[in-house]
């Protein structure tokens, strides 16, 4: 993990972070994580989200979901390449991502499209909706098996199952790219970040970086 050379300033940063996080439990993340959706909903109710609060809520929840997915994908590379250990927060981040995506979906269903027949038609016929919905479906088994008992029960299969988040992350980025009009940079930045984080996991990259040390 950590390099064998003499400790430099970077190692001090790593040690400080690791010492600090050792004392901070993961559970407050659930409370902090509840703040943005509640804030977004209250802001929408009280007219602080502008002229079109439904779209604003939908987009903000979607963006938060992507940030959380990206945060979750950062944890393994941070440990592997920088020695920063944040693994104990990964479950909370992943579950929050799932609930944010659920919120994003519910805003779309209940406040935006509203009409059940059109919801079904959109899921089947509109590729960007299909892609986003598929990503959500993929995350359901992951959320359900995020408890300790499932981890023990599934054994080695748990890791394999939870690698499905890679596919869901790619679909999430694709969902964003597909829904904008014209050529816009922002969704491609999200896609690039997600693809880069996934590339760091490829075995050739890991081998290459080990050889480099």
């Amino acid at each position: 993990m950590a390099t064998t050379t003499s400790p430099g300033p970077w190692d001090r940063v790593t040690r400080t972070v690791n010492d600090a996080t050792r004392k901070v439990p993961a559970w407050p993340l659930y409370i902090i994580g509840a703040v943005p959706p509640v804030w977004i909903f209250v802001a929408g109710l009280t007219g602080q989200l502008g002229v079109d609060p439904v779209k604003a809520m939908e987009h903000q929840m979607g963006e938060w979901s992507l940030w959380l997915i990206i945060a979750g994908l950062c944890i393994t590379p941070l440990q592997r390449f920088a020695g920063i250990r944040l693994l104990k927060y990964r479950r909370a981040i992943g579950l929050l991502a799932f609930f944010y995506i659920l919120g994003h979906l519910l805003i779309w269903l209940v406040l935006d499209v509203q009409i059940p027949s059109q919801i079904i038609a959109d899921i089947v016929k509109r590729p960007y909706v299909t892609v986003g919905f598929a990503a959500f479906l993929m995350l359901i088994p992951l959320a359900l098996t995020s408890n300790n008992r499932s981890i023990r029960w599934l054994g080695a299969g748990w890791r394999k199952l939870h690698q499905m988040v890679y596919a869901a992350a790619i679909l999430g980025a694709l969902h964003f790219i597909m829904l904008v009009k014209g050529f816009q940079l922002e969704p491609f930045i999200y896609a690039a970040v997600i693809l880069a984080l996934l590339a760091l996991r490829l075995s050739w990259f890991t081998r290459w970086s080990r050889r480099g040390r």
Partner: peptide, 11 residues
Amino acid sequence: RWSQATERVIG
């Protein structure tokens, strides 16, 4: 990419 059957009413 989306239905044009209905529209959201701004405001």
